[in-house]
Structure formats: C-alpha cells, structure tokens
Design a protein around this nucleic acid. Structure first.
Lengths: 211, 211
DNA sequence: ACAAATAGGTGACAATATGTCATTTTCAAT
DNA sequence: ATTGAAAATGACATATTGTCACCTATTTGT
C-alpha cells in the first residue's frame, strides 16, 4: 500500500508518477523493473519515491489493484446481465478482457503481468471474481448466482467451482500472451474448455446402458 | 542450458556447484537469488560461474528440468499401473508429489518455485505430464491412455483435457505451499476438484425429465 | 505576527550485485 | 620441451538499492 504522503500529493504529480510507473511496468515485468528508471522518467528525486512507496512492488500492486477493481465491477454487471449463469458470464468477461488487452497501452503491462503471474499476483487478480465486501448486498455475487444450474451438492463446493473457472480463464489469458494467437482462435479455445468443464471430462459408461 | 565446460567438470566440482545453487534456490526464489551467494558457498571464483552458466536462470532451469524428468518417468509408470485411467493417475501423482515435498531438502526449493511459478517455469514443470519424445513407443502416454473413459468427441480435445487437469493439479500444489494445509486436507480438496472436473460443473436440467 | 513543531522533500552515499575481460594456468598433442 | 587451445581467475567498471542527515514548507499555538 502506498504511504499516506502519496495520497496527499497533488493530482498532477500523482499522475506523473503513476504514468512513469506504468511505463516501466510495460517495458519489463515487475522483477526486472527499476526504481531508478521510474524516478528518472517521473523527474522526481530518488528519496521522494521512498517517501511515497515502500518499493517497486508497492507501486505495482497499487496499479494492479486499481485495474482489478474496475474489472470486478464489470464481472458483477455481466453476471447480472446473464441472469446468474456463471458459464456465460465467464465467457463474456473473457471476451471483454481480450478486447481490453488489445489497447496497446494496457497490452504490455498485462503481458508482463500474465507471463509472470505468481501466487501473489494471482490473488490480486482473482479478486476480480470475488465478493466485494464494501459493496451492498445487491451486488453480492452469491445473490445473483444461478446455483440451480451448478452441479454441486452443497454450498461448500461453490468456491471450488469458482476456483476451477478462474484458473482456466487465467491460463487461457496467459497462453494468449505467450502465443499471441488471434482473438477468434482464443475465444474458440476458451469456449471449448469451458464446455469440457460444464459437461465433465469423464464419460461414464453406465449411462449408455440406461439409454 | 549449461555450457559444455560445466559438463566437462569433474563430478565432485559439479556436485559442489549444484549443491550451492540448490541451497540458494531453497533460501529464496529465483528472482531474489544471487550469483554472489552461490559462488561464495561453492567457493569458486565469480568468473568460473559465468564459464559454466549464462546466468542464474541457467542453473535454476537445469535443476528444475532434472527433477521434472524424474517426475515424468513416475507419471508414466503410474498411468500404466492404473491402466490408463487419467483421473486415478493424476490423483496418485498428486499424492506422490505431496509426499516428495515433505522432504525438507526439496520442500523449500519447490515452495519458492511454486509460489513464483510464472509461465516459463510452468512450461518446464508441465513436461512432467508430456510425451517424452526420446523414449520408445511403449512409454507413449497416448498408447497407455484409456480414452474410452474420456468425454471427448475427437483426439484434438485431448490436449485440452490434459491442460485442465495439469492446471488444477499445479494450482492445488501452489495452494498447499501458500496455506501449508495438512496432507489429508490437501488430498481431500484435490479429490473434490477432480470429481467436479470428471462429472462436470453444469447440471443439465433436461436430465431430470429423462429419469 | 512570530516561533515552534511537524511533515515533506532532497540528493549524496555506502553497500552490494552484475557481467566482462585481460591475464594466467592447465594440459593434451606434437 | 614447445606450442596452442581451452579453462580459470579476480579485479574492475557499471549500475542499482535503500537510507539518512539536512533542508524547506506548512500548520499550530500564543
């Protein structure tokens, strides 16, 4: 979390700093990013940087969380539009993200983020699909979700379903950045995998005998 | 890949170097590891290190690939033992890995590796579940696999099934390292998710009418 | 209006790591 | 013994990091 001195900064200075940080994280992934570069581009003294942030991770996660919050709102809106159908919602969100990443300003930032997505980054990113405790009950994912369509025996299996959908989604995004495949191919692949998840990977032979 | 000078080294010196590298990568993840530390522990001159390796990534991936090759053999053996049943094989391998990671010497190395598993590391690790081109046809996963039990329409869906199983497995391993849950709880959680994958996340209401 | 107190800004600095390279050593082949 | 190629070495230039002593600006109390 940025220090309070950062939040007290005049908007303009904040923006300059943020822009410089975005530029650096678009150039290279977090682990290669250099504070020296950020302060050089932002034209602020080195000491000031440490006045505002604990280190480069601090700025990075600040940027990432801001974006994730926007995406979270989008996810909830899309889930509601699709009347709580998780699978349709994930597909819509996936398309949305792909579309977002076409924007060159975002593209490299997210490319580096996704190709270096470790557990810490994953946790932040997954918040996109989570309840947002600060919002009121009307936006609660739990309330919107159409659980009737889910093949679960009880509530406690729900987080596992979400988990599976999340990782398949993120994995698909990662592979898009790794292989730079076309928008259409990406959707096709994702849809195929979502359908496998929906219908199950296992063919129970006993079902043949019933027919 | 290590340079040829590394392979020409006498076994003893190689081992000293490898041990020092292992120690460093058990101390911290790749991105925090320092070559200075490795050469200090191995008691070799700095210049020699660069004679043998391109950089720290080079040693790290060398170590990781060696371990992955062993695991690949294990996976193929287990798959054959289970007569090509992918789900049973993945569960067995999962147990096996958990057991392996109990060994303190491995534990921290893999903890740092899993909690910082980016796309590059993932690719290496996933080789564990792949065909090994160098082996003969008898060990071919494709030949062993019982595809009858898989809910796929054609061969080209198979890689997607594998992909889904791989990422769910790796995700479970990552979460074990992140949350340090017990062996039993870990297996229980993994089994639950594998069953969700087998049976599908979607409950088709039309099936009720058939009954 | 003024001094004191508090908060914020600055850049020089020590510490440390990195990759290179000119030089030295080793050793096999003649 | 001589030579030439390969390997070993450690000092070095360069770069980055986080800190700290000092400076400036702003607020507070009288």
């Amino acid at each position: 979390m940025p220090k309070h001195t950062f939040y007290n900064l005049p908007e303009e200075k904040k923006d300059t700093l943020i822009d410089a940080a975005k530029k650096e994280f678009s150039r290279v992934p977090l682990f290669e990013a250099s504070i020296s570069n950020i302060v050089k581009v932002a034209k602020i003294p080195r000491g000031s940087f440490y006045q505002y942030f604990e280190g480069k991770e601090d700025v990075f996660f600040y940027l990432l969380e801001k974006r994730t919050e926007d995406m979270n709102k989008k996810f909830i809106a899309i889930l509601r539009q699709n009347k709580g159908d998780l699978f349709k919602a994930f597909l819509e969100v996936f398309k949305h993200l792909l579309y977002d990443f076409k924007n060159p300003e975002n593209r490299n930032f997210f490319k580096h983020t996704f190709l270096n997505m470790n557990h810490e980054i994953e946790i932040i990113f997954y918040k996109m699909f989570h309840e947002n405790k600060r919002e009121d009950d009307l936006t609660s994912i739990n309330a919107i979700l159409d659980k009737e369509k889910l093949n679960i025996e009880n509530e406690c299996e729900l987080p596992h379903v979400m988990q599976i959908l999340k990782i398949v989604t993120v994995q698909n995004l990662i592979q898009n950045f790794a292989k730079e495949i076309s928008f259409e191919k990406a959707i096709e692949k994702y849809e195929l995998e979502i359908n496998l998840l929906k219908n199950g990977l296992y063919k129970d032979k006993s079902s043949y005998f019933i027919e």
